[in-house]
Write a protein that binds this DNA or RNA. Structure first.
Lengths: 137, 137
DNA sequence: TTTATACTATAGTCAAACGCTATAGATTAG
DNA sequence: CTAATCTATAGCGTTTGACTATAGTATAAA
């Protein structure tokens, strides 16, 4: 029931990139220092975020990473979905065939509704909103 | 991000008990057959649910288990909270001290809001509602 | 054209959690 | 007193999570 550190660290990295948007490529090394997260771990998180087109990278010296879209066009919901591999309270929501009781299951609908409620909140939070509203909003 | 089988099986057991409420003590053996969940595993789930006063048990021959309150007085949210050990997307919500960034964390508030949204849904579902509304409501 | 800097890819390690099973014991109706 | 039933605790095998290590590939700049 907990979000993985993947999602939490990934979101922090994306917020860090958002705070340095328009400053050119940001090196992982620096994100690592500021956020106190291992370089190797961040490198791993970047891969799926690039595939999802949220980050673009520049190789070689002076290279680095930057948001592929402006901070107001990326939501935390999207980030979590990419890093968590889908947000769902139960795998029977995506894959009804994992359970032979699907047809008459009393609980499935509820898990789905609860998932959606959470989802909605996360989707309403763009990176720029997060930065502007701050922590104690 | 998935609910554990503990919560899902536990909820199914509670729904089963609700469907046999007022029939006297129900034996785990029978719940096990109907729900296709191991007896030993169910026995384990009953313990915390008894402590939380959702189930009461009768020992000896003809003994068994039954809801400690009517089905309309128990919500799925309560069951999940007991079996999951709290529903929270991040442990920093219950225990701010796990992270030294709490004071200026941009994400904590969002995890909390999303948690509450999910929570609200689960709390609105009583066992009797679940049974009456069925699966395809 | 070399070299240092930075990103990329894949595999490995360690510990904790999960899902489940087994054993032994306590209680009580009949 | 005994069989049916619940109770408690410990164990076990697998999976997942959170990292870490190694061996690259690309490229700006000297």
């Amino acid at each position: 029931m907990k979000l993985s550190t993947r999602s939490r660290y990934g979101t922090r990295m994306m917020l860090d990139l958002a705070q340095h948007y328009d400053e050119g490529p940001v090196q992982i090394r620096n994100v690592s220092k500021r956020e106190n997260i291992s370089v190797k771990y961040l490198e791993q998180l970047i891969i799926p975020l690039k595939k999802a087109n949220f980050i673009k990278s520049v190789r070689g010296p002076k290279g680095g990473h930057m948001l592929a879209k402006p901070p107001e066009a990326i939501t935390v919901g999207e980030i979590v979905r990419v890093l968590e591999g889908g947000i769902n309270l139960s795998s029977c929501i995506e894959n009804p065939e994992v359970c032979d009781r699907t047809s008459d299951c009393l609980t499935r609908g509820l898990w789905e509704e609860a998932t959606k409620a959470m989802y909605k909140k996360l989707n309403s939070a763009t990176l720029s909103k997060m930065i502007n509203e701050g922590s104690n909003s």
